[in-house]
């Protein structure tokens, strides 16, 4: 009899423990979902606002779904919103950003790969010093270089041009691209280069036949990192561009802050989404590599 009570008590307390555990679990999920809402809210508001008419924005609530979906704001943002005196929407600037980002990403990645290969696998005296100097160069606040850079671009005849911006992004991007490739190649045993040397292969042959085929993951990480950095750049864009060559971030800021006419929040939001779309897309498609780049770019060495 007493045995029986003890047993039921045990079961009871175990059940109690289970109930507590399940309750905690639920609490955990509720918390996590609340946080998810916090992170999603701005995106949600941006999207819904961009699909509303101005009339509805003025009368309705910020977080309400649009009663009537309209894409007018999107087409305005894309092709006719005013960025100062010009009223051609984001489209030309979106292309500017592509024309800047694509070559800059390609050039800085190629240079980073070669530099990283040299530093990690062909170590010579002073290579570590060079690496430290390059690494530190990617940490400076760029404010400290924009004044002389503006003058040098002027002297080279590149002031306010897209090649000028490509140049700037390459120069200040190679620190990071070198870091990425160096840290990747440094994990590859040096014996591989030795074996290939004995096999008769030279510097470029070894890079091309042995290291490059190994590098796909780090190329993806680097390309994504560079693309995100360059696409999202604002400081260089606003400092070194002129009316026709501004990147999309500068144009977005101009649309939002243009004082002419009625404040068209829906157009602002549509423009913001358009400007964010390429990098968001990259993030959604290749998030794993994006995160790897972020962590590699911060946990250094």
């Amino acid at each position: 009899m007493s045995d029986f009570t003890v047993a039921t008590q045990a079961i009871g307390s175990r059940r109690q423990g289970n109930v507590k555990r399940i309750a905690l679990r639920w609490l955990l999920y509720v918390l996590l979902c609340l946080f998810a809402l916090y992170y999603l809210l701005p995106l949600f508001v941006m999207i819904t606002t961009s699909l509303k008419s101005l009339e509805e924005i003025r009368t309705g609530s910020l977080v309400a779904l649009p009663r009537e979906i309209t894409f007018d704001a999107w087409s305005t943002a894309w092709s006719s919103a005013c960025t100062g005196i010009q009223c051609e929407g984001l489209r030309p600037f979106f292309w500017n950003s592509i024309l800047i980002a694509v070559p800059a990403v390609v050039i800085s990645t190629v240079l980073g790969a070669l530099n990283g290969y040299v530093i990690a696998q062909w170590r010579f005296r002073g290579a570590n010093m060079i690496f430290s100097l390059m690494l530190f160069g990617s940490f400076i606040p760029f404010q400290v270089v924009i004044l002389p850079m503006a003058r040098v671009l002027g002297m080279m005849g590149l002031a306010g041009t897209i090649p000028g911006l490509i140049f700037v992004h390459v120069v200040y991007g190679i620190g990071f691209t070198t870091l990425f490739f160096r840290n990747y190649y440094v994990t590859i045993p040096h014996e591989l280069v030795k074996a290939a040397k004995v096999d008769g292969a030279g510097f470029f042959r070894i890079f091309w036949s042995i290291f490059l085929p190994l590098s796909l993951p780090i190329i993806v990480v680097t390309v994504i990192w560079q693309f995100t950095q360059i696409w999202n750049d604002f400081l260089f864009g606003i400092s070194f561009s002129q009316a026709g060559t501004q990147p999309v971030t500068v144009a977005l800021n101009n649309i939002v802050n243009s004082t002419t006419g009625v404040k068209a929040y829906n157009v602002d939001m549509a423009a913001a989404i358009i400007a964010a779309l390429p990098t968001l897309l990259v993030y959604v498609v290749a998030g794993k590599y994006f995160i790897r780049g972020l962590t590699a770019g911060s946990v250094k060495g």
């Binding site: 014996e191 030795k194 036949s209 042995i210």
Partner: peptide
């Protein structure tokens, strides 16, 4: 003289096989 012209062959501790090449390609690379 550089290694390739010394008429030597070398086997390494980590084997140093070219990871992206097949066994046949590894052997014929030189």
């Amino acid at each position: 003289v550089s290694p390739k012209d010394r008429d030597i062959a070398m086997v390494f501790q980590s084997y140093a096989l070219y990871p992206t090449m097949s066994v046949a390609k590894n052997i014929t690379f030189g």
